[in-house]
Simulated assay, not measured.
Amino acid sequence: MAVLSATDPVVVDRDAGETDATTVVTYQKQEHEVLWLRPPGGGWDRPNLFLLVGEADAEERGSFAFVLRPGEVLQVVVYRDGLMPSEEVEEQLRAEAYVRVHCLLGRRDLISDRGQQTGGTWHRQSVATHVPTRVVLAAVTPVPPVLGPAGFPVLTAVAEARATRDGTGTLHELVLLPLLPGQHRFCTVVVADDAGDWDVLVTELDTLRRQLTVEFPTLHVYDDGDPGGYGEASFTFQVLHRRAPDPVLLQEFHRPTADIDDWGETARPYALGFAHVGQPQRVRDGEQHVWVASRGLEEDGFLEPDEAAGSWGVRLPLPSGPWEEVTGAQMRLDCPPSSDGSSFHYGVDVRWSVAYVP
């Protein structure tokens, strides 16, 4: 997998008499991958990396410096061989790696208005400006930025989400996702005009808490594991944040040993009625995913070995973004034989809903 990094943005200090600034681009890629460079005001070019970097292994790794003047933008992208940059498609959506470097000058009053909306897993930030601008930075972090050189905001924590840059204009609609529900966060947006002047907006936000419901309404026995008649089996059903081998359990349900019959392997249904009804939750890192799992054991007594079936777990699809809520989604969790010689096989219906509340 290709890796690209660069000093972004670079800031020209007018008070110190500077007229330009230098960024350093570092890359690592496979030999069959191609690095493309787009200098300010130019088109995409495939540079000779040996000449640019001056090292024998330049086709795979290296670094190079590039001088920029205020308002200029440098773009660097890595593609699989055979692909080329496009003017019509956001490069970072197609590329193995992508960086864009802005050269900025000084802070100026560019932002004229703002607006925001926050859900459980997303935040929409609107920024209006007096003159056409582009988005230099849009990120959500757990702590506010600090002021760096020339007063430019510097993120001191890993961004939980970043927004795709949306071109030049006087209104920027930025959607940042995915975010953790029920958390206090800071959104930082930096815009810049063609002269390199920039402005910053820092807002605080609270994502909505997640309320999760997972039901196991019906058990379906495909094969009761006893060709001579009915079987006897017990079942366990789990809702988890993380599955085995290091599970984090939300709730577990148990159906004790009882007779089961597959009605001639026609998937006989048995009503269960188990349900995890969660309270509104502040979701921490590692808890954003939800899994369902099940194990069953068909007991054959002393003359035959017991037969096992089950599923280690399936992750429930929980969408992020403005359409994050789920109402009554359904699936059937397949639990095939899981022990040697077992024919025991069943499935369990799963129904889930997700709401986001203050």
Rank of each mutant, 00 (worst) to 15 (best):
D45E: 15
E55K: 02
A56Q: 13
A56G: 04
D57P: 05
A58N: 01
E60I: 03
F64G: 03
V67A: 08
G71M: 01
V78C: 11
V78K: 05
Y79N: 09
Y79M: 10
R80A: 12
L83I: 02
S86L: 07
E88Q: 08
E88A: 03
Q92Y: 12
R94P: 08
R94Q: 14
A95K: 06
E96M: 02
E96R: 11
Y98F: 15
Y98I: 03
Y98S: 07
V99G: 12
V99S: 03
V99H: 06
V101F: 07
L105Q: 11
D109K: 07
D109V: 06
L110G: 11
S112M: 03
R114E: 14
R114H: 13
G115P: 04
Q116V: 01
Q117T: 09
Q117L: 06
G120M: 04
T121I: 02
W122F: 15
W122D: 07
R124C: 02
R124P: 08
V127N: 09
A128H: 13
P132N: 05
V136Y: 04
V136A: 04
T141F: 09
T141P: 10
P142W: 06
P144Y: 05
P144M: 01
P144T: 04
V146T: 15
A150V: 07
G151W: 13
L155G: 13
A157G: 04
A159L: 00
E160M: 05
A161D: 09
A161L: 05
R162Q: 15
R165N: 11
G167T: 09
E173I: 01
L174W: 01
V175G: 00
V175T: 14
